[in-house]
Amino acid sequence: MIIEKEFKSDIDSLDEIQDFISKAAADCGIPENIVLKLNICTDEIVSNIVKYSGAEEISLKFVSGDDGRSFCSICYIDNGKPFNPVTETKELDTSVPLEEREEGGMGVFIVKKMTKSVTYKRDGNCNIFTISI
């Protein structure tokens, strides 16, 4: 099953985007614990796009199926400035005491840890970031 939808790149779109993810996942029979992970990853990815990319639009493409192993992937497509979260974000050193931590850098780290894979490509004037879970 493939479900696609476009949204404004705006912080006010976040609730609408989360509703889209939750509904698409429910329609595909995805278990609740995986839906929560998809919601968390979506919050991290979309908030980064809205805050830093300068994009006007975000398109989401939700793909779910069964190729012998159930899978679910989401592509986040934005028309903002080029940014590769796979290579341009630092690993978080979780052994550093909290009082010595700097703000930031946790969002993409959480996404990488919660998913089976993350990929990025630049296509024309669009960033395409895909997570598989």
Binding site: L36, S47, E99, E103, M106, I110
Partner: peptide, 21 residues
């Protein structure tokens, strides 16, 4: 609490630092 993202974790860290001090 059903879930927390990094924006919530930053709040937890901020509060932790205040209390630790």
């Amino acid at each position: 609490l059903s879930y927390i993202s990094s924006s919530g974790i930053r709040i937890i860290i901020k509060v932790y630092k205040e209390l630790k001090k």
